Every structure is written in C-alpha cells, then in structure tokens.
Amino acid sequence: MKRYIKRKTYKKKIILILLLAILIGIAANNTIFNPDFSLPSFNGLTHHIASEANGWNLILVNRDNYIPDDYEVELTELSNGEKVDSRIYPELQKMFNAARASGLDLFVAAGYRTQEKQQQLLDEKVEAYVNEGNSKSEAKKLAAQWVAAPGTSEHQLGIAVDINARTTKSSSDKVYRWLAKNAHLYGFIKRYPSDKSDITGVVNEPWHYRYVGTEDATKIYAQGICLEEYMADDKFR
C-alpha cells in the first residue's frame, strides 16, 4: 500500500510539472507575438493588458483587456464634484452647451472612478442580486452585466461618463436621443449599444458615453459599430 501511494504521488508530480511546462510555453509564445500579454500574476489570474499603442483616446478596455497598472490620468473636477480626464473636458463642455441650447437639462452622473470605488459598486450589485434570491455565483454573473470588474471599467480611465437628465426639466428619453444623434460631433460614442451586447458583454447603457476623438467617433457612428469592432480593423493591427 505504501509503495502504491508513493508511486501515485510521483506520477502526480510528473503530471503537474508537465502542465506547468505547457503553461509556461503558452505564456512565452504569447509574449513573443503579443507584447501586451502579461504573464500569470501571483494570485493565479492571467490578464491581457489594454494597449495604448493607438493613442490614449483609443485604448480598448473591457472584460478581456485590463487597464495598465502604470496608467495615469490628470483630472478636472466638474461643478457637481465628478471628475474627468482633463483632455476630454473641453469637448465635454461643448457638448453640454449644445445640448442645453437645444432645451435639455443634463448632468454627468458618474465620471472617473478609483479601483476601490469600482470594487464597491460591484460588491453592492452582487449583494443586491443575492438579496433577490439568487445564488452567489448567479449573482456575480448578473452583476457583471451591469458593473465592470475593477481594472476593466472605462470609468477608471476618466474618459467615460454617465450622462443623465434632470427629470424635473428634461426627460431621460429626450436626453438619450439627443446624445445618440449628436455625441459623435464632440468626439463621444455610445459605448454599449443594445444591439452589440454580445460583443461588448454589457447590456444597453444609453447613458454611458466614451471619448475617442471627433474623427474616430464620426466613423464609428457612421458605420453603426461598437469600439471592439472598430479596433478589430486591420489598420490597428
């Protein structure tokens, strides 16, 4: 019996060593062909790091592409205390001025978020679904459709904003319709269209707008595509 146990343990060790060698080989291969690939972290997770090669305005952050650890942002505080990347502030202000000139009353409900704030929002969403009777695993799946995991939220970049209406003066529908039609003129795109959820992994969010710059926003708007599809174009490879 003792010999059998030793033999069995020895075989397990060999299998584990082989698996580890395979994983290292895969990681090395990805590193050679993809400079943005990151090796497994100490907690056992492997994250693909979003590339900044196409410019800060076109960095693609989503469930598969994490914000670089050394990503830095200079913030400008808005009148209501929310903050955004200083580089998008001029165009954001122009867009708001144009919307207000059209009789709409709107505001930035959410701008820049820290990693800690994003984690808090996710935890709260999971807890809410658990309280509705869902299992913890199911609650996490449901929450992920609405709240991005820390490190994968565009709000942590400072170039995405949630825009809502002051409903005492303007309806949400009117504000969302105006944004959908005009935001590209100021460099913003509706980041999560209802017909692109299978690609973005996020349900329809008519309030979430992401800055990419006027030229790219106009192309994305004209083609009726999402950022993932746009960045998959050969010109970005």
Rank of each mutant, 00 (worst) to 15 (best):
N131S: 12
Y129K: 10
Y129C: 01
Q93T: 10
E116N: 09
A144D: 13
D64I: 04
Y89D: 08
M95C: 06
Y129V: 02
S137D: 12
I59M: 15
H48T: 09
N29P: 00
N80T: 09
A101C: 00
I67A: 02
V147T: 13
A27I: 03
G81L: 09
F42S: 13
N54K: 13
G55W: 10
K125Q: 14
A144N: 13
A50P: 05
F107W: 08
K141S: 08
F96R: 04
I32S: 04
E132G: 04
P90K: 10
G55M: 12
Q115N: 12
I22Y: 09
E124Y: 03
D85P: 03
L78T: 01
E127T: 11
N34V: 05
F33Q: 06
N80P: 10
E116M: 08
R100G: 11
N80A: 06
K125I: 02
S86W: 00
F33C: 02
K117L: 08
V147D: 02
K125L: 04
A143D: 01
A110N: 14
E127C: 01
K117Q: 15
A128H: 07
A128I: 01
D123T: 11
S41F: 10
W56K: 15
G55D: 06
D123S: 14
N80S: 10
A110M: 11
M95A: 04
S38V: 09
Q115M: 11
N97K: 14
A110G: 05
A28M: 08
S51W: 02
Q118V: 05
E124C: 00
V84D: 00
E116H: 04
A98F: 07
E138Q: 12
L58C: 09
L92W: 00
T46M: 09
D69P: 02
Q120F: 02
R113S: 11
Q115L: 12
E116D: 13
I32W: 08
Q145G: 00
I59E: 02
A53R: 14
I59R: 00
Q120D: 11
A27M: 03
G133W: 09
N57R: 13
S137Y: 06
L58G: 04
E72Y: 03
G111H: 00
Y89K: 12
K141N: 08
E74R: 13
Y112S: 03
N54V: 06
L106K: 02
L45T: 09
Q115H: 14
N62T: 09
I88F: 04
D64A: 14
